[in-house]
């Protein structure tokens, strides 16, 4: 690796660090129940819940499994499931 002068870093380069491996519980969105309000996306500390069509989807490469999305979902459309089950 060539070191940059003064330890500069490229924008958004933490993307190389896949924090999905931190997860114990995995949020699963029930697409049927999802009303597409975006609350989960707004509160996600990783910014890893994105709008797909009129619903939302989670990028599990980065989701740390904190569970804020499930806790805040106004229609309880997200379930936290133990990883691997």
């Amino acid at each position: 690796m060539k070191l940059s002068i003064g330890a500069m870093a490229e924008p958004g380069s933490t993307r190389t660090n896949k924090t999905g491996s931190w997860r114990t519980f995995k949020p699963i969105i029930n697409v049927e129940a999802c009303i597409g309000c975006g609350t989960c996306s707004m509160f996600c500390p990783e910014g890893t819940i994105c709008k797909v069509a009129d619903k939302y989807a989670i990028d599990y490469d980065y989701c740390k499994g904190c569970g804020i999305c499930a806790h805040e979902c106004p229609v309880k459309a997200i379930e936290m499931v133990l990883e691997g089950e």
Partner: peptide, 25 residues
């Protein structure tokens, strides 16, 4: 859709309030 300007992969704890603040700002 607005581009996410605070990228994932950061080392904040799961459930980090400061990271949410950074994203909202």
């Amino acid at each position: 859709m607005q581009e996410e300007l605070f990228a994932p992969g950061h080392r904040g704890c799961a459930g980090c309030g400061a990271a949410i603040a950074a994203r909202l700002i």
